[in-house]
């Protein structure tokens, strides 16, 4: 299990001559094994926070400790290696590789690691089963529905057994029925596998499945009265 700690985390960038600050001195602690929903209006900094935690982007200032490691100062290649081991990322639009089958898409993250073919097969099979999409393993993305694609994407995110799962609007492109199924699956993964799970969402239904919900506005956490900035 993995914990996350943000101290005065700030992200700024220039757009023309204007400085945009999607994250503004954010302090946040996420306990290992928690399932958090991150909500807020568009431009509130949700995806920016998710990308910083995933090591996709770098903060302008502040500290970001993931599992005690200050990832902001890792080199690009070390960050890639760190992501391969620690992070599973689920995208709104699934981002499956269209020329690979469901099985091969799920296998992709394992190819980075020194595993035998047999070992990879066992892990892919297990991830597909956990995601409830094992019966479609030989289908190409174009042959799957949106919900099925997202299940494949989730299988891909968990196949290397990363302790941290990050999801950016995982139900944003799905109908209600599929959304519910995906949310249930995410909660199951959090509960059964003990993953730390952070989900960026606009979907209020997500809050029913998450252990806690964070609200971001203009790059800052909006704390409900009496609520600590320490979560789950």
């Amino acid at each position: 299990m993995i914990g996350i700690e943000c101290r005065a985390l700030t992200k700024k960038f220039m757009k023309g001559e204007t400085t945009i600050t999607p994250l503004d001195s954010l302090d946040l602690v996420i306990e290992p094994g928690s399932f958090l929903a991150l909500m807020g209006p568009s431009g509130s900094g949700k995806t920016t926070l998710l990308n910083l935690i995933a090591g996709i982007d770098r903060p302008t200032s502040g500290e970001l400790l993931v599992d005690g490691l200050d990832i902001a100062h890792l080199s690009r290649s070390r960050l890639a290696r760190w992501r391969a081991e620690k992070v599973g990322y689920i995208f709104q639009l699934y981002h499956l590789v269209p020329v690979l089958t469901a099985y091969e898409n799920v296998e992709l993250p394992l190819l980075i690691h020194p595993l035998s073919r047999k070992e990879r097969h066992a892990r892919v099979q297990r991830a597909l089963e956990l995601a409830g999409i094992a019966d479609r393993h030989d289908h190409y993305p174009r042959q799957l529905s949106g919900g099925q694609e997202q299940r494949v994407a989730i299988a891909r995110a968990i196949v290397a057994d990363p302790p941290l799962l990050l999801a950016d609007e995982p139900t944003g492109d799905l109908d209600r029925e599929s959304s519910t199924a995906i949310l249930k699956l995410l909660r199951k993964l959090s509960e059964d596998l003990g993953k730390t799970l952070l989900v960026v969402t606009h979907d209020i239904a997500t809050t029913d499945y998450a252990q806690a919900t964070l609200h971001l506005e203009k790059g800052r956490l909006v704390t409900e009265p009496g609520e600590e900035q320490r979560h789950a």
Binding site: I56, A80, R83, A84, V87, V97, I112, R156
Partner: peptide
Amino acid sequence: VREVGTLQVIGYPRRA
């Protein structure tokens, strides 16, 4: 380009 981004998020180094 997006697929390249995805591969990098998955953990593939740029040289791969």
